[in-house]
Nucleic acid binder design. Structure first.
Lengths: 243, 243
DNA sequence: CGCGGTCTTGACAGACATCAATTTCAGTGG
DNA sequence: CCACTGAAATTGATGTCTGTCAAGACCGCG
């Protein structure tokens, strides 16, 4: 039943973000999909590559990163289950960054050719997937704002708010808790600071009574205040409001 | 002939980035387009709005920006003639940022409805325009890298390299010179620093003999060294290599 | 039990921000 | 034609956030 499992993840995701009619659902069901386990730290796609398939994250975390001068790594996005981080590869190549598994992850691959055929057959699905790439884009813009205008404490807080909010949508964060297997070095590379400073900012968030962060689990002790400190407004995530 | 003028700008842009067959060209020609002059500083679209049309920049500059806490403004992208900065509004609303004219500009509006009809009729055009939004996205990622990993001097240098390269594509920069009507406050808001520091970095670029920047014209005295200082690699712009 | 990765802490340095004043200069009106 | 005005650019002095360097603590793992 692995095939069925991957399809159900994909259609569940699509139903969460849009109304999916029967014809479109059938098209999605007919996509050939291949599940795969990847160990933590493994690259899914690499800078400069041209790929012939997209991957959807089924379980775990992925992150997208670019290498700047001196080999400095900047993480530009986190990805949670349901995301198709290289969806853009359908229309843009070569890839200009790396996508790597943060911890052990489960992904599924969808070959470009049938994917494109499906999109050509359905303006509705084209809209849905195009929109997904645009939401991605909106997150990058918000990261630019974070790095450009928010201080180190707010940047870390903002990252936590974003993760919590996105994870709740896919049912992977409870009211006050979620798993996040990133080291402080990873956090530093995502928020534009050194690991030493990331450590101090995390401690400060703890001292303020806003979070607990033990090992891989983050607990939100006062989400409202955290959001306020972070200048977090979830509008940029373009979540579908349940109707 | 204003209608014809706007159409020719649009098809010229599309031909620059992709092969356009006759059928697709005809579809584009049939779009209703309305030209408009806008004075410098005027908003084209505002945060929170839902729009029913896209705008293509015909002449001048636009910039995209978001307002963070304390009213601090972060510019997240510059736009040059040929760009359709709110193309994403076809599939994503409401708008989550502002787009404003940097100086006096000429734009043209394309209503969503016929635009969508056209895309539904042509997988080729869907590909082209979808790709445009993905290139946008790639620029945001690079800005994240700049703000996260490059120092103030490199960030300004990088911005100049990006502008020069993009302007050359549309024939608006000569080998060593282009117009750019931004104040140092604008530059500071785009590169994540204070105007005072932006001023000092610009002076440093002058002192190094890399640029001249008088009024609204920037002159590149040593583009290779500027690129090297900026850690600039144009791959992220995904320019079509002329064949 | 030893090893390497991760987290933590401290001292110090440096990049950049802040505050404040001065200069430049295009536009405007007398 | 020239004083007046305000925005933009420039400069200096000072403060602070964040980086750098270095060491130690903790901990899972072989």
């Amino acid at each position: 039943m692995t095939m069925g499992f991957a399809h159900s993840k994909l259609t569940a995701r699509l139903r969460a973000i849009a109304l999916l009619d029967d014809a479109d659902a059938a098209l999605v069901e007919s996509l050939p999909i291949k599940l795969q386990n990847v160990p933590g730290g493994q690259d899914i796609v690499r800078d400069g590559q041209t790929v012939e398939q997209c991957c959807m994250l089924v379980d775990g975390y992925l992150f997208r990163h670019k290498i700047a001068a001196d080999g400095k790594r900047q993480i530009v996005s986190w990805h949670v289950p349901g995301d198709i981080p290289d969806l853009y590869s359908l229309h843009l190549d070569p890839i200009d960054h790396n996508i790597t598994a943060l911890g052990p992850a489960v992904i599924c691959f969808i070959p470009h050719h049938p994917f494109k055929e499906m999109l050509n057959a359905s303006p509705g699905l084209t809209h849905i997937f195009w929109r997904e790439t645009l939401v991605d884009s909106a997150l990058f813009r918000e990261w630019v704002v974070s790095l450009g205008k928010r201080d180190a404490l707010a940047r870390i807080a903002h990252m936590i708010c974003e993760l919590a909010t996105r994870l709740r949508v896919v049912g992977l964060a409870t009211e006050d808790r979620f798993q996040f297997p990133a080291s402080q070095v990873d956090v530093a590379d995502a928020t534009g600071m050194t690991p030493v400073h990331a450590n101090r900012m995390i401690q400060q968030l703890r001292a303020k009574g806003l979070i607990e962060w033990e090992g891989q689990t983050i607990r939100l002790l006062n989400f409202e205040e955290l959001k306020s400190l972070a200048d977090f407004d979830e509008a940029y995530l373009h979540l579908r409001t349940p109707r």
